[in-house]
Design a protein around this nucleic acid. Structure first.
Length: 359
DNA sequence: TCGATACTAAACACGT
DNA sequence: GACGTGTTTAGTATCG
């Protein structure tokens, strides 16, 4: 079972110099359960730029680093936010922070590893030369696009992302680029977006992930990760979870996204889709409806059958809240691990460890 | 064995 | 014309 954050906030501040979220209190009553109100600041996510990812790895004794997990490390990052980091819930920095890209079990997972070192962290057991990642090109493209701020990338951007994150492709024969283009064209999971001519720079179009295919892509990613990692705790990675969260949100907009722009007729067999709505917009909509539709949503939750526990995370002023299923909202200092299964307890424990809370 | 899926290579068209 | 991009086809490999 995975702990699945519907809304997970990411902070661009240096996590390693944080006061570790402590103290974290409810604005009113630390132990009081609250209901998420639309009047409260709504959760949002952050796009971490590369500088944010260059923070040094925390020491093993750092509360943000060693995560309580029997199966391995499950770094879940909680840290204060700044207004500027409330940009994007869908950022896949989880891929890096949770080391999804690195399939080998990591002795100590840096919270914010540098992109280029992610795939080949200097672990003694690894060969010096990069090995081909087990991910399919579809997965690579998916991750690349999801990791982009606007959730759309030109082909060149996809190339760059892959090269930056999988050094294997730095030295690999260039045929893989053909495979990327082949996948983009052939796969229904990806849609071409017309570039605005007025701001068109460079060749080609932008590519995005079709939300209706996002669950499938995510599932493939999960399976790949499952098959290639003997450290199941890595699957607690916020990256996957966040993608799942975004998936839930985005799926609801399938119809809208499927509506082709009448001004931009389809191209060939792979028509460009209209742009994905800003995720903040989606989040806002979702959040407003959260309270009313909590139960209903859980019923139609595409992840409901997948063993996920959905939780929401948001920040109000200096306080950070974890909203558990059923709108039971707890602040991170007083939250207790409930009767969850072992893995969920691990994840929740990791969360609390990261939050610096005690339980 | 068979089908599905993915990878690779190649060719071609088109735009910059 | 070179190069990048996008599409299509074909062959091969892997896996369940």
């Amino acid at each position: 079972m995975f702990l699945c954050p519907r809304v997970w906030r990411e902070m661009e501040n240096d996590r390693h110099t944080l006061p570790l979220l402590s103290p974290i209190h409810s604005p009113t009553n630390p132990s009081k359960t609250l209901s998420l109100s639309p009047s409260l600041p709504q959760p949002s996510a952050t796009i971490l730029d590369s500088t944010a990812l260059s923070s040094p790895a925390p020491s093993p004794s750092h509360p943000l680093s060693p995560l309580r997990s029997s199966g391995g490390l499950t770094p879940l990052c909680l840290s204060p936010t700044t207004p500027s980091d409330q940009d994007d819930l869908t950022c896949l920095n989880w891929l890096h922070q949770r080391n999804l890209l690195a399939l080998q079990p990591l002795p100590k997972m840096p919270t914010l590893p540098q992109l280029e070192s992610l795939n080949f962290l200097p672990t003694p057991n690894l060969p010096s030369s990069p090995t081909k990642p087990p991910y399919s090109f579809s997965s690579l493209i998916f991750m690349a696009i999801e990791d982009s701020p606007d959730k759309r990338l030109p082909v060149k951007g996809i190339y760059e992302w892959i090269v930056n994150n999988f050094p294997y492709y730095k030295t690999a024969p260039s045929g893989w680029r053909n495979s990327v283009r082949h996948n983009l064209s052939l796969s229904k999971s990806f849609r071409r977006i017309h570039r605005d001519k007025s701001q068109s720079v460079g060749k080609g179009s932008l590519w995005c992930v079709c939300p209706e295919y996002r669950p499938g892509l995510l599932e493939v990613l999960k399976k790949t990760h499952y098959c290639h990692s003997n450290n199941s705790s890595l699957l607690n990675s916020r990256t996957l979870l966040e993608a799942a969260a975004y998936e839930q949100t985005a799926v609801g907009d399938t119809a809208e996204i499927s509506d082709l722009d009448s001004n931009n007729p389809p191209l060939s067999s792979n028509p460009p889709c209209s742009l994905i709505p800003d995720h903040e917009e989606l989040v806002a909509i979702e959040s407003v409806e959260l309270t009313e539709e909590a139960h209903e949503e859980s019923e139609k939750d595409p992840l409901a059958d997948s063993g996920y526990i959905e939780f929401h995370y948001y920040q109000y002023q200096q306080y950070q809240y974890l909203v558990l299923p059923g709108d039971t909202e707890l602040d991170l200092e007083t939250v207790e691990i409930l009767q969850l299964d072992a893995e969920a307890q691990e994840a929740a424990g990791s969360l609390l460890d990261l939050a610096g809370g005690s339980h």
